[in-house]
């Protein structure tokens, strides 16, 4: 194996690593909207709000 093909192999391997890392990064994002929906469904049950006057999801003013 000469130096040129070694370098090419290293380049391919590195590219694959970066692409792989990029995809993994997407997975660890916390799904905030889905979590809010799940929270609302549980709060509906715990506080028995179903059918009654429900407060629409509003953008939190504090955070």
């Amino acid at each position: 194996m000469n130096g040129k093909s070694m370098r090419r192999a290293a380049f391919v391997l590195l590219s694959a690593c970066f692409i792989g890392a990029g995809c993994v990064t997407i997975n660890i994002y916390f799904p905030a909207a889905a979590a809010e929906k799940a929270a609302d469904r549980i709060i509906d049950e715990v506080w028995q709000l179903k059918g009654g006057a429900t407060v629409p999801a509003v953008k939190p003013e504090t955070k």
Binding site: I19, C23, A34, A38
Partner: peptide
């Protein structure tokens, strides 16, 4: 490799539409 990474990366993203409760 790119295709495999895309498949591995895409499937959990679809599952994220809803949280399992």
């Amino acid at each position: 490799m790119v295709m495999m990474a895309a498949v591995i990366g895409a499937s959990p993203a679809v599952a994220q539409a809803n949280l399992e409760i």
